[in-house]
Design a protein around this nucleic acid. Sequence first.
DNA 1: CCGTATCCGAATTGATACTG
DNA 2: CAGTATCAATTCGGATACGG
Lengths: 130, 130
Amino acid sequence: MVTAQGESVLRGSPYRADCPTRRILDRIGDRWTVLIVGALWDGAARFSELRRRIDGISQKMLTQTLRGLERDGLVCRTVYPEVPVRVEYTLTEAGRTLRDPLRALEEWSIAHLGDVSASQEAYDRGSTSS
Amino acid sequence: MVTAQGESVLRGSPYRADCPTRRILDRIGDRWTVLIVGALWDGAARFSELRRRIDGISQKMLTQTLRGLERDGLVCRTVYPEVPVRVEYTLTEAGRTLRDPLRALEEWSIAHLGDVSASQEAYDRGSTSS
DNA sequence: CCGTATCCGAATTGATACTG
DNA sequence: CAGTATCAATTCGGATACGG
């Protein structure tokens, strides 16, 4: 549970900012990465199709996030030099292994979102009704 | 896998920004939340002890993140009206359930960080050596 | 079609100073 | 000890315009 790169975030102290989990969260914690991975789940997709599938993403952020994922070796970008050019994105094998941890997180979210929302409302009520 | 609140991020389209997973990632995706949850893993801790344990966190961010976790019902704050005052933080039962998904993420990180770093270096070399 | 470049406002974070 | 308040720096994200 402890590597040469850094210590566990969940156990051990002090908790270093450059531990593996923090580095990965810096990647998947942003607004779009998880959405893109999800959109590529079923297979390859073109740039414009991703743009259509992911509600609200701008062209800039789609490009930027895809570049980051490509740099990390999680997404593969293939250019077909046709006219007009066609670009397809797919998850790499490493990218597909993200499925399990992401699913665990999703299941936790679905199971606890109600409690969290209720707790938030209770907390906010307590603050305003002084 | 699909709730009344929103659709799965991993499957289904379009991928909505207000799905459960996105809401939870908005919480744990920030720079400090996971570190704090990790620091509270072994049991209760005082404010200043957390500050010492979490490398590089500022007083402001520790307070702010703890407030957020408290609002979400994941952390419990207890004030002991001694002199000087003592404040202890613990994970709630809901907070402790975060263990499994966080562990899954940590294990993925540890298993793949090497590959990711190598991929990054290769990618960066390819860009600069034009 | 698939981007890149630039500008700008909004949100995050940190440093610092001060309070019960 | 355990915060709150304020300000400045940085980063993020979106809109727009343009290029291969």
